[in-house]
């Protein structure tokens, strides 16, 4: 299959879905498909926070899975105390089989205490870590 064909097939697959960005990176090629309003980047992992009242800065799991403090294919931990993150940046992952779900920082700040262990089974709303405000 040529790259052009692949792009056509993938575009057709995205048609009618609410998915705004598809990024495929392989050792040979990179394909990036984006739809909708291109003036703003699509929001990162706009996962609704738990409806239970949590103290501000508490980051919880968005779905059941296994908590990962680092991306298996990337260097450097995501959930590490004193790491500075921007709003929307990943502060950890929940792994479900082959899927990796990003846990996005709800605001920019500094990772405080990491509450869940790497490899721990978590459910929706399980506290994972604290995010502290950036000191001025």
């Amino acid at each position: 299959m040529t790259a052009a064909e692949r792009v056509r097939v993938l575009s057709e697959t995205l048609e009618g879905t609410s998915i705004g960005l598809l990024e495929l990176t392989t050792p040979e090629e990179t394909i990036r498909l984006r739809r909708g309003d291109t003036s703003h980047p699509p929001p990162l992992a706009a996962i609704e926070p738990s409806m239970r009242a949590h103290p501000p800065g508490l980051v919880t799991a968005p779905c059941p899975g296994v908590f990962r403090t680092a991306h298996p294919a990337q260097d450097g931990p995501l959930a590490q105390a004193e790491r500075h993150v921007a709003a929307g940046e990943a502060v950890g992952l929940v792994q479900v089989g082959p899927l990796l779900v990003h846990i996005a920082a709800p605001a920019s700040g500094v990772v405080g205490e990491v509450l869940a262990e790497n490899g721990a089974t978590v459910g929706y709303g399980t506290p994972l870590l604290r995010l502290q405000e950036e000191r001025a």
Binding site: G20, T25, P27, G36, P42, P43, A46, I47, L99, V101
Partner: peptide, 23 residues
């Protein structure tokens, strides 16, 4: 969910839903 990332054998796929404003 609004975002999905899948990695296997050196390939990575990232999908992001277009949802408008952040809640």
């Amino acid at each position: 969910l609004t975002e999905l990332e899948y990695s296997k054998g050196g390939a990575t796929l990232r999908l992001v839903k277009w949802t408008g404003a952040l809640p």
